[in-house]
């Protein structure tokens, strides 16, 4: 496990400057106190509720947040801070992104050209994702959702990236293809890349990832080993357990309530309003991450 840490994010916070009534300015904090790291040769899956800041983390790492974002905290790449000039050199080469939305494709450009100018590289990448050669000459609107996803994956892997951030690469792909895409990320990791895999499909990710970071309302609540996701007693945080129970294969039981809105986060533990084990202790202060059974958890009661 003492492999080289490729990317470490410590105490990251992201806020958006917004205008309220009149000239009043307010800051909407969407990520707070977030920690994550990924080592060489490792896949870390980032799971959690929609709107918990998973994609924002990806955008923060790549420095492509909108102009009104205020970022604080540390992002280190290979041991040194990831500054704007450094990012400009690395982005798209050593650090690659598979974006979340198929709308990242240029609608007026044939997809082959969007993947790479090098025709041979396009051919190889397409073959890897079982796309026909002829698909390179089609425009995005002529492809199905799953095919567009595969084109996005191909875009990120034509180069020789050391850090790959894949933001929901598989929805719309059939089981078989999604598995193949995951296997491909696994191969890239085994060849020495570090992969951050943002996904909702925990089931799928479990077969390929080494660790799972669970996000809730803009912060990491737990980092667990993939092997912990075999029984909810091995999981540490009540939210992770709730996720586990809601999976179609494990009961399909939803927990009531919704994640708090960024403008009105509760004091103390962010999950407390929905947690059936909460006490007075959970409603104040910052709950620091601590080590529990080879994982990290932000809960005062986890054991």
């Amino acid at each position: 496990m003492e492999n080289k840490i490729v990317l470490s994010v410590n105490g990251l916070s992201v806020a958006f400057k917004m205008y309220g009534k009149g000239f009043a300015r307010k800051e909407l904090r969407v990520i707070s106190n977030l920690n994550i790291n990924v080592r060489k040769g490792e896949i870390i899956a980032v799971a959690g509720s929609s709107g918990s800041g998973k994609s924002l983390l990806a955008h923060a790492i790549l420095g492509i947040l909108p102009g009104n974002a205020v970022v604080s905290g540390e992002i280190n790449y290979c041991g040194t801070p990831l500054t704007e000039p450094r990012l400009r050199k690395l982005r798209g080469k050593e650090i690659a992104l598979v974006p979340q939305s198929v709308e990242y494709l240029d609608p007026l450009m044939k997809v082959g050209k969007q993947v790479s100018a090098d025709k041979a590289a396009v051919k190889a990448a397409f073959e890897r994702y079982k796309l026909a050669d002829s698909a390179a000459n089609l425009f995005p609107f002529q492809l199905s959702g799953g095919m567009m996803r595969r084109v996005l994956c191909a875009t990120a892997v034509v180069g020789n990236a050391k850090l790959i951030i894949a933001d929901e690469p598989t929805p719309g792909m059939s089981k078989d293809l999604a598995g193949r895409a995951m296997k491909h990320f696994r191969d890239l990791a085994d060849a020495g890349a570090a992969v951050i895999l943002i996904t909702h499909d925990i089931d799928l990710a479990l077969g390929y990832a080494d660790r799972i970071a669970v996000f809730y309302a803009g912060t990491t609540v737990e980092t667990a080993l993939a092997s912990d996701f075999t029984d909810d007693s091995l999981l540490r945080h009540p939210y992770t357990k709730a996720l586990w129970r809601a999976m179609p294969g494990n009961g399909f039981r939803p927990t009531a309530g919704t994640q708090p809105y960024a403008g009105s986060l509760p004091e103390g533990c962010l999950f407390a309003p929905r947690c059936d084990k909460k006490t007075q202790e959970c409603t104040y202060g910052i709950i620091e991450p601590r080590e529990v059974r080879n994982g990290e958890v932000c809960c005062r009661y986890a054991s």
């Binding site: 799971a47 959690g48 509720s49 929609s50 918990s52 959702g145 929901e168 929805p171 719309g172 909702h200 925990i202 709730a242 996720l243 809601a246 999976m247 179609p248 399909f252 039981r253 939803p254 927990t255």
Partner: peptide, 12 residues
């Protein structure tokens, strides 16, 4: 595919 983009709790 109405729930593919949602987390498992929201999906349920």
């Amino acid at each position: 595919e109405m729930s593919t983009m949602l987390d498992v709790i929201t999906q349920a």
